[in-house]
Amino acid sequence: MHKNVTSTKENALAIDLTKCHTILSKYNQATPADLIPILQQIQNAYGYLPQSALEEITARTRIPLSKIYGVITFYSQFSLEPRGKHTIKVCTGTACHIKGAPDIKKKITEVLHIHEGETSQDYKFTYDPVACLGTCFLAPVMMIDNRYYGKLTVEKTETILKSY
């Protein structure tokens, strides 16, 4: 299990566990219900869930690593791999679908050479599909980090991506 979770990419990066310790220090008597909030905070701090941080969680909460891994792989929010500097969330919801989201997705793959769920080689972008951003009036829409881009066309998409 340990080896499975560790990614080779991660070994190349030294992980500073200070932030992880700060987060865990708030959970002196952690219960299983705290696991998801802990993982969310660690992912926020590091952009993904480093293996060494997961080992710290196990040590602190006594929740077995296998259980932690099970939870991580169930929820699409969590990532075991380092992520790109920017996250592109492309809406694949119904309203966006009928207004041309499939073409937008194709364009992103064409421009960045990555598919859904992947990170570009230069670690600039991670590309995640999401089922509805709740801004259907902007369809088709994508979000880059916290910024919305609505009423997209393929041309607009290309210009936006290149502006980063």
């Binding site: 998801i36 909030p37 993982l39 969310q40 169930f74 929820y75 699409s76 929010q77 969590f78 999401v130």
Partner: peptide
């Protein structure tokens, strides 16, 4: 408040 983690 509990936040979901992305699962329909």
């Amino acid at each position: 408040i509990k936040m979901g983690a992305g699962a329909f």
